[in-house]
Write a protein that binds this DNA or RNA. Sequence first.
DNA 1: GTGAAAGCGCTAACAG
DNA 2: CTGTTAGCGCTTTCAC
Lengths: 328, 328
Amino acid sequence: MVTIYDIARLSGVSKSTVSRVISNHPYVSTETKRKVMKVMQEHNYVPNSLAIQFRQKQTKCIAILIPDLSHPYFSQLVKYISADCYKSGFKTVVHQTFLDKSREREVYTQLQKNEYDALILTSSTLQEEEIAEFTGNNIIVACNEDFRGDYFDVFCLNEEEVTMNVTSYLLSKGYTKLGFCSDNISSPLQQARLKGFILAHEKKEIIHNKNFLFNEISTIEDGIILGNRLFKENLEIDGIIAGSDFVAAGLISSAVRKNIQIPQRLAIIGFDNHPISLVTNPQMSTICNHIQDMSNDLVNHIVNKMNGVKHHPIKKVYNGEFIERNSS
Amino acid sequence: MVTIYDIARLSGVSKSTVSRVISNHPYVSTETKRKVMKVMQEHNYVPNSLAIQFRQKQTKCIAILIPDLSHPYFSQLVKYISADCYKSGFKTVVHQTFLDKSREREVYTQLQKNEYDALILTSSTLQEEEIAEFTGNNIIVACNEDFRGDYFDVFCLNEEEVTMNVTSYLLSKGYTKLGFCSDNISSPLQQARLKGFILAHEKKEIIHNKNFLFNEISTIEDGIILGNRLFKENLEIDGIIAGSDFVAAGLISSAVRKNIQIPQRLAIIGFDNHPISLVTNPQMSTICNHIQDMSNDLVNHIVNKMNGVKHHPIKKVYNGEFIERNSS
DNA sequence: GTGAAAGCGCTAACAG
DNA sequence: CTGTTAGCGCTTTCAC
C-alpha cells in the first residue's frame, strides 16, 4: 500500500504538503501541486479513509435503525433517507432489529464506539429513557416513531389525529363495528393510532369491540390470514383500519374471494399510500404519509447539528392526509 | 473521552494489559483482569472503534450496491444479505445508484480507500472489465446480476433458461403474440432474459413482435400505464412476461379494469414470487427466485475469502421455478 | 504475566 | 508557501 509518506518522498516534498494537495488546501504553489498530483497518479495513490476517519474522529456514516426491510414503509423510508444522506456526503448503515431489544442495544453501543456520526431511529422497542442514556454527546434523531421528544429530536406523522379522523369518518358513515390492526402495539406510534381509534369512538359514544383489535398483523400474508378467519357469511365486523396498505391488500383480496362486497358490507382503509393501493380491486382508500418531506427535513437537521447548531430537542409533526378511493 | 491509557493509569497497569483484557487475551491473571474491568465499568469506558479499525485495517463493514430500494426485489435482497452479514459480524452500507454510473464508480473508489472490507454488487451499469480494474486486492462479489464470472464471483439465477422455459410454455399453450418487459435492458440479467425469450420463439419457429419488447418498465405504476396503452377491445397482444411481480400486478389491474379476461384472452407472468402475487385477482403466476439461499451462500463465501481461502472466481447458478397460479 | 516502545497513515499547529 | 513535529487510540512484538 502506497502511503502519503511515499508520495512525499517520491515528489521531494513533505507529508504536510501532500496532505495539503489532497485536501485542496490553499497556500500551495501550483507548481508543487502539479508535481505531487503527477506522482500520486503514477503510483495510483488513494488516501486511506481509515486513517482519516481516525484522525478526524468522524466516519461520514449515519446508522439507521428499522425493524425489517421487507416492510415497504421502511424500505421507502430508508430509500429516501439514504439518498438524502448521500447528497450531504454521508453513507448509511442499515440495521434491522427484527424487534429484538438486544440487537437494538448493540447499535447504541456501536454509536458510543464512534462507528457512526449519528443514528436515525425509525422504530424502537425500548423506552425513551433507556435510549436517552446512550445518547451522551451522540446525535440521535427519531423519524416516524411518535416519541414524546423530551430527549431527542422527533419527526413524525400526527398518527393519533389522523387515525381519529378516519375512524370518525367511518363511524359517521354508519360503519360502527370497526376493527383495528397494529403491527407491534407496544410502540409509541401504534399506541398513538390506537388512542385515536378509541377517541373517535368515545366522541360518538360508540363502544368499540375489543375483540376487533388485532395485533402483530404486518404483512400481506397476515392480512390474508386474518381475513380468512374473520370474513364469513354473517359478517360481524363492518370496517377495518389496517396498519399498512399491504395488510389492507391482504384483507381486500380475502374479502373478494369470499364474495364480500367492498365497501358496501365492509370498509377497509390502509396506511401509507403505497402504489399497491392502486392495484387492489376495488382501489384502496388510504392515508398519505409524508416520508419524503420527513426524510429531507431530518437529514438537514442532522447536518446542522453536526455543524454545531444547538437547540432543545425539536418535534416536527406532519399531517397525514386521507385519500379516499373505493374501499370505504 | 476516556481512552485505554486512562484506564491503564487508573488501574495501575500498562496499556498493553488493558488491551489484553479488552480483547480477552489469555495470559492475564484473573486478579488484574478483574481490577481492570472494574475501572472500565466505573468510568464507562468504550473502546474507540475508529482506532481499532485503523490499527487492524478492517472495518467489519460490507457495502452493497443496488439500483433502488423501493424495488421490492432489491429490498428483499438487502434484507437477507444484511441479516446474514450481521450474523457473521459485519455491518452493511447500502448504496443506491439509481442507475447512475458515476455513483457506482464512487463506491468502487470508497472500496479502494478501505472504507469496506468487501463489496456486493447486485446490479451494475458498467462493463465487467471496468469493474475488474477497481478490484485489486479487494473483494467484490456479484449477486443477482448475470455476469460472466471471469473477474469476480457470481451468484445468480438461471435467467435465460427459466425465461425460455416459461416462454415456451406460453407458446405451446397457444399464446403466440407475446410481450416482454424489462427494467434496464442493458444489464446482463435483462439481456439473459431477453435471450431466453427470443430463443423460445426460435425453437418453435415463431416470430416475436419487436413492438412488444418494452423497456424501462419497473414499477406498479409503469405496469398500469403500459396496460392502459396496450389493452383495448381488439387486443393485439395475448401474453406478457413481466419483469417483476409489481409490474405484473399493474398490468393485471389495468386489464381487469378494461374487462379483459385473464388468462383466457391474456396471460401474464411475473417474476420473484413476491406476496403481492397472492392478492391480485386472479392470483398471479410467477417465478421463484432463490434470494434467501443466494444471500446465505454469498455471505459465507465472502467470509471464507476474508479468511484467506483462495480460488478462481466461482459462478453459482440457482434454478428459478415456475409457480403457476391463475394468470396463465 | 506484564510493561516498554514502536508504529499504523494521516492532519494540524507552529515555526520559518 | 513549506517543513517539522507531535499525536490521534489502539495493538503487537519483544524483552523482562
